[in-house]
């Protein structure tokens, strides 16, 4: 709990600093950063995924996304390497399945979408507070206030948010919202989870999913890598992954800290109120010391000549 208090304090002090020029409204404190106890998540068991792309098709239909470049039963997409990398979510596809070829075993397929972090970096980086972590666990955003600065794309440790660059009049951030509007808020299973023939994904409370995941690791010794990706990464994510191959081999970023991304920024945020509080006195003091006993020709019009040369 001390964490929450500290964060609230931080947000408050930063807001306070802004208040020097203009007092922000109560809305400024709306950023809800703490994890919700009953937040939902999805457990993704990569050992089950066969790369059928049904989830991609389901997402496209549910979110009314534009027509894809290729049919969803076209597996040549697995060989695509835009910029030499595997595919990633874009403004037209909120989720993608990639194939990661292995040297010793069969290829591993992995579904990528927003991981719905407990403490989302996108949310904490957004200067118009467009993002929201809902009590149901989804990280959603308000496209009516998005300015298009793309800071969230910088901040997201999973490279998830995309941006509708192609739009001239209303370009905004585009990303998976956990089917919040159409399903999650009514307690329904997200479209991708429902469409999966292999039950790669298990929907449920994050707390319970963690239990299920560890039970699977225990029950099938040697089947899984003994790690639940997302349990601790960047403060924990709503979507959790089990894998038979080391996560690095399945394209995961394994160098992420367990601390939320915002913790890195706290050092700086903490000095903000200090500078605001100390600098005025410090520099006015310097000024008084430096100019003590000297004439200072303010208000004298163009009076530089009157002042002493050092």
């Amino acid at each position: 709990m001390s964490k929450i208090t500290r964060r609230k304090f931080l947000a408050g002090s930063v807001a306070g600093s802004a208040a020097i020029a203009m007092a922000p409204t109560k809305k400024a404190f709306g950023a809800n950063l703490e994890g919700f106890p009953d937040g939902m998540g999805v457990l993704v068991d990569l050992t089950r995924c066969v790369g059928c792309r049904s989830c991609e098709a389901a997402c496209n239909k549910e979110q009314k996304l534009p027509e894809p470049d290729k049919s969803f039963d076209d597996f040549s997409v697995f060989d695509e390497r835009p910029h030499g990398e595997h595919r990633r979510p874009t403004e037209k596809t909120y989720t993608v399945v990639n194939r990661y070829d292995q040297t010793k075993t069969e290829p591993v397929y992995r579904k990528i979408q927003c991981n719905h972090c407990n403490e989302p970096a996108c949310l904490t980086s957004c200067f118009v507070n467009a993002y929201k972590k809902t009590p149901e666990g989804a990280v959603i955003y308000n496209d009516k206030v998005c300015v298009g600065c793309r800071n969230c794309m910088i901040a997201c440790p999973f490279n998830i948010p995309a941006f509708s660059y192609s739009s001239a009049l209303n370009p905004i951030i585009k990303k998976c919202i956990f089917c919040y509007d159409t399903r999650l808020k009514d307690g329904q299973v997200p479209a991708c989870v429902e469409s999966c023939p292999q039950q790669v994904m298990l929907f449920g409370k994050r707390k319970e999913l963690i239990r299920v995941a560890h039970a699977r690791i225990r029950r099938s010794p040697g089947k899984y890598v003994d790690h639940l990706y997302g349990e601790n990464e960047v403060g924990g994510t709503g979507w959790l992954y089990l894998s038979a191959v080391p996560f690095k081999e399945a394209g995961f970023n394994v160098s992420l800290p367990n601390e939320p991304i915002i913790n890195n920024v706290k050092d700086f945020l903490a000095i903000v109120p200090m500078v605001l509080a100390i600098w005025p006195a410090l520099f006015t003091g310097f000024h008084l010391l430096s100019t003590k006993g000297k004439s200072h020709g303010h208000g004298e019009g163009h009076s530089h000549e009157e002042q002493e040369e050092h």
Partner: peptide, 9 residues
């Protein structure tokens, strides 16, 4: 659903 066959892009 799969945008295939007659529904192909």
């Amino acid at each position: 659903f799969f945008r295939s066959g007659q529904f192909a892009p």
